[in-house]
Write a protein that binds this DNA or RNA. Structure first.
Lengths: 225, 225
DNA sequence: CTTACCATCGAACGCTTGTTCGAACCCCAT
DNA sequence: ATGGGGTTCGAACAAGCGTTCGATGGTAAG
């Protein structure tokens, strides 16, 4: 399986794409494990057995969706960042690209975010290699911004995953017909994150003293036993 | 089913708690739909049929975990916020409570976050009512902070769900043996969010001009067809 | 010791699942 | 028209699923 789809698509490629899109829509709606191949066959208007001409197993189907999704996002991102020096600008572009892609491919991205552990073995490793690559890119940008602007008081790892948390959580709430459009969403999140990361922490923190620090129970377990 | 467990637990209650904790651990590890009642029976050291003395269906089992989790988190939060005037301080406490509870009950919270749509019908409605209650609380705090500090340029809904995204994403990466402890994690995220929300957006944004705004393709679909 | 109730279990039911197989179909080059 | 390879399909399989039922064990009160 190659990273990129041929521009000129054969009948076979077109049908595979149709299957992947249909599957992603159902996976997004009811979850990978609750979706049966029969569900996919119905929506794709094919027979059960006919589908297996295009993939070897349900798990490989999930892999094809995830891998191609990651491939595209990373490729687009690399193109976008090329030749830009300021890591803050690069990060801004990464966020824009991520959210733009997410919103315009909500089904596939929900499957990528939510079904990350529904895949196992070698296929899991392959997807994870791409993920690590992408996360490392973002983390190195954030680290570099921190270095140049002498950011203190925020852990780079925490910052990176907080950013991905913000961005990847949108499948839980974002409604394109009701919420801001992608451009405004990107701007909001870039501002939230960059201002938060760079922002003068000390400026606000002194006013947050509660006079009862360390008041939290260490709730070791939900149900004490 | 009541919201709170009796302080004095009968033999029955203790065993129910044991089942809930065991189930949550397996659900967290392999997902709700990939977990069979037989898996739970094995780990809980009970027979398959014996489990059904404690719940009526697999779905109700999930509900019990989620409902009790939400119940505890909201109750703790209310107690903590009581009598405090500054919404920024209240939000800080909400974040601390949320993360403290999350880290100390990672299994249950992962099930709460990740299996939100694995439940349906009336049980889903019940859990969702609690969720809305909790989200509304956070959103109203954020809105009030925005009003008092005259925050501009960030949508309150986007800010709220970005915060929950940051916080709830941690089950995907947080490793208590390798990462910061809960106190430091809370401090980091509070700083990231509050500085981000309050922070002078204009201060940094002018330096982020790329000279090619609107350059992003509207990637309508992953696989063009 | 007997009664009654709470708790537990082995075994089975009906159903859905992912996957396979061999036969049939379609369509284009000869 | 005919051959053949690329597609499609109906039917079946074994395995696993959630759930039920009737019977059994344990235990505390009468």
């Amino acid at each position: 399986m190659t990273n990129t789809m041929p521009a000129e698509q054969s009948r076979y490629d077109q049908k595979l794409v149709h299957i992947l899109k249909t599957s992603a829509a159902i996976f997004a709606e009811k979850g990978y494990h609750s979706t049966s191949i029969r569900d996919i066959a119905r929506d794709a208007k094919m027979s059960l057995a006919g589908l297996y001409y295009y993939f070897d197993s349900k798990e490989e189907l999930l892999y094809l969706i995830q891998d191609y999704c990651f491939g595209t996002i990373i490729e687009e991102c690399r193109k976008l960042l090329e030749g830009i020096d300021d890591p803050a600008v690069q990060l801004k572009l990464l966020i824009e690209n991520h959210l733009n892609f997410f919103v315009n491919n909500m089904n596939e991205m929900k499957v990528l975010s939510h079904e990350a552990n529904s895949i196992s073995g070698d296929l899991f490793k392959k997807v994870n290699a791409r993920k690590r690559q992408y996360v490392d890119l973002a983390m190195s940008l954030i680290a570099e911004i921190g270095r140049r602007r002498r950011v203190e008081g925020v852990d780079v790892r925490v910052a990176t995953f907080s950013l991905f948390g913000m961005m990847n959580w949108i499948y839980n709430w974002y409604n394109p017909r009701k919420d801001l459009d992608v451009a405004a969403l990107s701007q909001n999140m870039t501002r939230l994150f960059l201002s938060g990361f760079l922002g003068d922490g000390a400026k606000h923190e002194h006013s947050l003293e509660t006079g009862r620090e360390g008041h939290l129970d260490r709730t070791v377990s939900v149900w004490q036993q």
